[in-house]
Design a protein around this nucleic acid. Sequence first.
DNA 1: GTAACCTTGTTACGATGCTTAACGAAACTC
DNA 2: GAGTTTCGTTAAGCATCGTAACAAGGTTAC
Lengths: 260, 260
Amino acid sequence: MSTESGTEAGTPGPTRRERNRAATIAEIKEIGLQRMHESGTTDVRFAEIAREMGMTAPGLYRYFASREELLTALIVDAFDDLGTAVADAREAQPEGDLWGRLLATSAAYRDWARREPQQFSLIFGMPVPGYRAPDEGPTTEAAKRAMGQLQTTFIEAARLGKLVPPLLDGVDEAFVKGINEAHKFDHLMPDAWDGDRTEVAEALTPATMQAMLMFWAALHGFVTLHAYGHLEWLGEAAQEALFRSTVEQGARCAGLPTAP
Amino acid sequence: MSTESGTEAGTPGPTRRERNRAATIAEIKEIGLQRMHESGTTDVRFAEIAREMGMTAPGLYRYFASREELLTALIVDAFDDLGTAVADAREAQPEGDLWGRLLATSAAYRDWARREPQQFSLIFGMPVPGYRAPDEGPTTEAAKRAMGQLQTTFIEAARLGKLVPPLLDGVDEAFVKGINEAHKFDHLMPDAWDGDRTEVAEALTPATMQAMLMFWAALHGFVTLHAYGHLEWLGEAAQEALFRSTVEQGARCAGLPTAP
DNA sequence: GTAACCTTGTTACGATGCTTAACGAAACTC
DNA sequence: GAGTTTCGTTAAGCATCGTAACAAGGTTAC
């Protein structure tokens, strides 16, 4: 560690060893994911991974201190996967097309969950005791990042003047208080939004915040049921129709435009 | 088995042995559940249960052929638990109070999930391969029973003439087709409804069916996030307000009354 | 009452998995 | 080329699942 030979000359890149190590770590995670995919569970067996890599199980402990640590790494990766999948889908739509972006974002959320039910389960399933430890935990972090992508669309709508008050009977006092008291509110800010945060707070009234959460919950509910096959009796086409209706109704209730 | 001594006289009750056996099975399941509760996971360890019962692990195989079979039994029990919890809450409200019943039903769903996250996870979490085997699987069965409780309220509303068309932009053709082609539709009928099924089909138009599913999905989404702690940053009161708004908006969109 | 049988639970065993400790080999640094 | 770090191995301890063989009790039949 003290003798890093990469930082001296014009080669700030990682050492050969570091590259090998990174590659091995990546391979471990990849095979672990692949095994999860094949077994259909979120289990991870060191022995199995090692076998598949042509190694012995204890060797893996050079890279992960325990099975739990590998799982944590996989969870963190899942965050990134979901985040980028949703963000990419959103940015693939024209900038002003709020409805298109909302729909694309939601669809990406749904498709990722269906494509990677294990990773989805890692993030949004029952929290495994021990993963909340590091600083507020990656669990809530995932929720915030997913929320952040949604929020980006809402903020964009507000900036374009296309955000109308949501269809709510009024916001409960307790909700406003809860929102304001949540100092973790800052974490909710999406990275894309570097502007003045008070402006954001103004753009997103408590009512809109609530509507946004309700939109997210509704979307998440459909996605969960969809990804785990609880809606399969409907058939693919009907599920697609139900999804579209869910997003449409959610947008309408939240005060977002529902058509280009 | 061939020598059942309980069926002859006025004692059709189970044999002493059968009672003992049933009690042991109940104890195993109870301790298993208790251990799940304490560990915070859906794991079940035979050795641990046996130890806690003052037995040795192989003894449990007299009652459950494998760990999987115990898990399956626990899943089935979870169905009943959730079903009765929701039904009881519903029937505790006055018969004509549709809004009260809907709210009570939804709250029972939420509270059960929060109180028993492990059982909730067993039912609605990622399906474990192997549990879908027995006759369409208990997984979809759970969804249907939960749906059934909701549907009962919708049917009651229809019979009382208090069900108006839902706020939908029209129902997709694919959805109608999917609903009609789902012959498992029959299973969706709640036990409480013994009347003519065609009447039910008339009362619940495809649009209402879709609205009902959307209501359920929205509720399920909130409940999932709530039960797994993803909304804890809001605080209890705000979560309560959000829940109430979710049910209210869902009812309004579905064409159900939102006030007594 | 006694003999046969069934039920239940035990110990013994083998396979698999996680994890640590001790060791050897290769790579990298100087 | 010598010393250090990294990597991966073998050996071993411990826990688990699940099977097999066996012992002890209750139950049934005669």
